[in-house]
């Protein structure tokens, strides 16, 4: 059954294929357009460089009026990512706008890797290392980068 949500998701997919932003890719599951797999490549000149971080996006029929649920499937060490992979990102919560599409969500997450916000930490250890011991923070992030290749 085609609903506005499904049509919008197919449109998002078409856009992502025909005009992909750099360093991200994503596609719906072949048998369920409401679940998407995505990969974000770690931005250059950040500790996340060379990482291939996998995410799962889960939509329901309230999209795009409500944001999807986004979760990292890869292990992450980032001030704004919880241990279970969930993100603390304003545009996926109170700053969500129905004008965002999948490409916008993924590019936002990509820029979050580049530019963490240690003031609202989801991972307290990562946040304090980011503030106080950048060298150790980078080392821990590099570990997750390597594990993201597996």
């Amino acid at each position: 059954m085609s609903t506005p949500t499904r049509r919008r998701l197919m449109r998002d997919f078409k856009r992502l294929q025909s005009d992909p932003p750099g360093g991200i890719s994503g596609a719906p599951c072949p048998d369920n357009i409401m679940v998407w797999n995505a990969v974000i490549f770690g931005p250059a000149d950040t500790p996340f460089e060379d990482g291939t971080f996998k995410l799962v996006l889960t939509f329901d029929e309230t999209y795009p009026n409500k944001p999807p649920t986004v979760r990292f499937a890869s292990k992450m060490f980032h001030p704004n990512v919880y241990a279970n992979g969930e993100l603390c990102l304003d545009i996926l919560q109170n700053r969500w706008s129905p004008t965002y599409d999948v490409a916008a969500i993924l590019t936002s997450i990509q820029s979050l890797l580049h530019d963490p916000n240690p003031n609202s930490p989801a991972n307290a250890e990562a946040a304090s290392l980011y503030r106080e011991n950048r060298k150790e923070y980078v080392r821990r992030v590099r570990e997750t980068v390597e594990s993201s290749w597996e």
Partner: peptide, 30 residues
């Protein structure tokens, strides 16, 4: 299943990352 599918594709995805910060993503403050 989604995770396992991504993991299958991970080998093809492992390549040098292009400079990839977009010009205008939606604001990403937390």
């Amino acid at each position: 299943r989604a995770c396992s599918q991504i993991c299958q594709h991970a080998s093809t995805a492992r390549r040098p990352v292009v400079a990839s910060i977009p010009e205008s993503p939606p604001s990403s403050q937390v």
